[in-house]
């Protein structure tokens, strides 16, 4: 990169090894191009110029690793991102979920929670929130702490409101939050049924059974090997006929598990476990 940080492939391997041995996080099967970008991003923010420095800090300063992990993972998210997906969710999936006495949904890789808030709003509008339990997990504890607070920057609300309307929302969007000078707080009753907790898709196991799993734009950071492994985990976490929602540009096409799913919406990347 012309910002002066140059990383060789074997140096990335070494960093991954240090993190695995010392802290138990395994990034070996992360998508290499974006992982390398993220490492550079961290080094830039920390003012580090060489891989030697990075290794030194990782090995000798556990507090540096905490910061590094928070900065390494992509934590960008939006409310009602891809309005067409949420419209499809409202029209196709939510009515089917209504037939379960208790609805269980897993947001795998929820970042700072914006998609979870969106889901809660949709369930509220469908009259289903009271009998839903949403499990929202992320690898990054700092994200979860933020997500629990329900805080969204005010500067993003204009866009989120437009997304909400495009998704088929007809309520007054501002009724779902309390506005402050520079941020809004999502109404606490919307988050009452949400359990935020740490879960690492790479190393952790199945922990419950769900009728809907949203894992949108999480698998893109993994290589094909790891995508295959995680898709097995997601499959095993679904009830028969349970739904799986991926990001708009994520495909099951070349995945081992593909035959076990049927497509519900090709455009919105919603799939259903066959049996």
């Amino acid at each position: 990169m012309s910002d002066g940080i140059d990383i060789l492939p074997h140096e990335i391997d070494e960093i991954i090894q240090v993190i695995r041995e010392q802290y138990g996080y395994d990034f070996m099967d992360y998508s290499r191009a974006s992982f390398t970008r993220r490492v550079k991003h961290c080094m830039q923010r920390a003012g580090l110029k060489t891989m030697y420095e990075l290794r030194y800090h990782l090995i000798n300063e556990p507090s540096f690793f905490v910061w590094f992990l928070q900065t390494l993972t992509v934590n960008v998210t939006e409310m009602f991102r891809d309005p067409a997906f949420y419209r499809q969710l409202r029209d196709t999936v939510i009515p089917r979920l209504a037939s379960y006495p208790i609805i269980k949904i897993w947001h795998a890789g929820c970042a700072t929670g914006e998609e979870v808030y969106s889901m809660a709003i949709i369930l509220k509008e469908a009259g289903l929130l009271d009998r839903t339990r949403i499990y929202a997990t992320d690898i990054n504890p700092a994200n979860l702490e933020k997500a629990r607070k329900g805080i969204v920057p005010l500067s993003a609300m204009k866009e989120y409101t437009a997304n909400y309307i495009r998704s088929g929302g007809t309520e007054d969007f501002s009724s779902y939050y309390e506005a402050h000078p520079d941020h809004v707080v999502i109404r606490p009753d919307l988050l009452q049924k949400v359990l935020f907790s740490q879960h690492n898709l790479v190393t952790d196991q199945v922990f419950n059974e769900f009728q809907l799993i949203c894992c949108r734009n999480v698998l893109i950071y993994f290589n094909k090997n790891l995508q295959n492994r995680v898709l097995h985990l997601l499959y095993d976490s679904l009830v028969p006929l349970g739904y799986l929602a991926l990001g708009m540009k994520e495909s099951l096409l070349f995945m081992e598990i593909r035959p076990e799913f049927e497509g519900v919406s090709e455009a919105s990347k919603i799939f259903r476990r066959k049996h």
Binding site: P9, S31, R32, A33, S34, R37, R38, H41, V74, V76, N217, I220, Y221, K224, G247, K249, E250
Partner: peptide, 10 residues
């Protein structure tokens, strides 16, 4: 490296 595209939402 394996001549595939990778998408990134950073």
């Amino acid at each position: 490296q394996d001549r595939t595209f990778s998408l990134d939402y950073s």
